[in-house]
């Protein structure tokens, strides 16, 4: 075994240079040159200020905004510096309590909405950073947003539709609505009308 230690050491050194140095640097170079927006986190800037990432959700408690998936990150929800799921098992009483509390909060924000709540709106996402909700979850919230913002329901639905992404290539994944972009569009709508 001792005879093999020297080549082992040298091999690791060589491959540290190739796979640990050259390879990530080449990828970084091409990525920063070819896809700088994506490679740096797909950030959204408003007036030179970063207001978020298209790919990272944000927390909302104000009923005037569309709410995203519940987030289990600590110490605050949607902490993109420490991603985490809830890891609650299906029969854990804590899961039932959390879901019940979310149902109550949603109903309190809009007592007139009596349709069943889409499941993704009251269950924590895997990353705690999910930027999206299902089209059903957006449709469920649309009447509340329209009323609180004094907008016609049709125009809110139009905005939702505009920010709905179909399955990729019509096939892959699930249809979804980007919550941050939708809320930014709602705020822009308000400024337009002033």
């Amino acid at each position: 075994m001792l005879n093999e230690l020297k080549p082992a050491l040298l091999m690791l050194a060589v491959f540290t240079v190739i796979t640990g140095g050259v390879y990530p640097l080449v990828v970084t170079g091409i990525a920063q040159g070819g896809f700088p927006h994506q490679a740096n986190g797909t950030l959204i800037e408003h007036d030179g200020k970063v207001v978020g990432s298209e790919l990272i959700g944000q927390p909302y408690t104000d009923p005037k905004y569309f709410w995203g998936r519940p987030s289990a990150t600590g110490p605050v929800p949607y902490n993109a510096g420490a991603s985490s799921g809830s890891n609650l098992g299906p029969l854990n009483p804590a899961l039932e309590e959390a879901v019940k509390a979310r149902i109550e909060a949603l109903k309190a924000a809009d007592p007139s909405q009596t349709a069943p709540i889409p499941v993704d709106l009251v269950t924590a996402s895997a990353s705690g950073l999910d930027p999206e909700i299902s089209p059903a979850a957006a449709a469920w919230q649309a009447p509340r947003i329209a009323r609180l913002r004094g907008l016609p329901l049709e125009s809110v639905r139009g905005l939702v539709e505009k920010h709905t992404q179909d399955r990729q290539f019509g096939v892959l994944g699930e249809a979804r609505v980007n919550v941050l972009q939708l809320n930014l569009a709602l705020d822009a709508e308000r400024q337009k009308s002033r």
């Binding site: 998936r69 799921g85 809830s86 890891n87 609650l88 299906p90 899961l95 889409p118 499941v119 993704d120 269950t123 924590a124 996402s125 895997a126 990353s127 999910d130 999206e132 909700i133 299902s134 089209p135 059903a136 979850a137 449709a139 994944g173 699930e174 249809a175 979804r176």
Partner: peptide, 13 residues
């Protein structure tokens, strides 16, 4: 309109 099922711990996309 939605994936449904057990969405706890799953991502929308």
């Amino acid at each position: 309109m939605q994936a449904g099922g057990n969405m706890e711990g799953k991502e929308t996309r």
